[in-house]
Design a protein around this nucleic acid. Sequence first.
DNA 1: AATGAAACCTGACAGC
DNA 2: TGCTGTCAGGTTTCAT
Length: 311
Amino acid sequence: MPELPEVETIARGLASRVTGDIIESVWLGEKPEPLKSAASEIVATLEKRRIAGVRRVGKHIVFDLVRNGTPDAMASETKRKDKRSANVRIDGSRSSRARLKVPSALSRKGASPSQAEWIVHLGMTGRMLVCRPEVEIEKHTHAIVTLASGRELRFVDPRRFGRLSVSPAFIAAGLEPLDIELQPFTGLFRGRKTPIKSALLNQKLLSGVGNIYADESLFRAGVRPRRRAASLTREDLKRLYVNLKEVLKEAIALGGSSVADYVDADGEEGFFQLQHRVYGREGEPCLTCKTLIKRVVIAGRSSHYCPKCQK
DNA sequence: AATGAAACCTGACAGC
DNA sequence: TGCTGTCAGGTTTCAT
């Protein structure tokens, strides 16, 4: 569901609410699908850690975790030696609210690095909620993290395309659209025969651009989504570069786009959907020239464009 | 190597 | 009311 501006909004909301809090325990649902790392490793990495910060990397939410009372990461401590999975049991019964029990040896000092990261990808329908324990547990809740402040952090994801993982230091595959400079940006598309729309969605090139902002940036740049990436001129690429950054920044300023059911960490909707010029406007007049907006499918994704404004 | 289609899931909505 | 078909903001895997 969420793309870069939505994830940025959610990460900022989470940062303001849970930074400094301490993770007491972790419950993981019975379905293994949302887990990219082993359940035992996630539990062992999260429990008893302090949340030093929350940030966005591409479309990922990254929780920076430090050992409680250890504000600074110990850079040398990056090697992980666990033999812990054997004793960890997953109890999926939501009603009993059973918690994973981690053997005490795992919490001993030195059992894991002092710095770690909890990575959350929301997929299409994932949400992260911060709430009181008495709040009813929604259907499709796959993880509940109990905080020392008495609140809970809950991961809810009906379609289960979201993923949870842990890592010593997560690195996105692609480059950050908001940080990249013009030269590396143009270099990403050199020699690529794939449609520019597909290239923009390729997370190994740029991380964070999704279907809405790909369509919106291409409209602003006046480039048709089916154009071969390599066919874009220097001027096309410059306009795409400028407009992609612009549309992402504007969307972040408005709290992202709420098309279906996206809400941020505080349950607030974004407002950028009101600024969409092509996305979701098939058959409606172009805001610039009144030509009807077309929708085609490119690499399996809906793509919206103005046949007159985009060449 | 690179490209596209299919698969992974559930829910909402339109049309009959 | 309820059935069927379509669509969805993402990523990975498989075939070509």
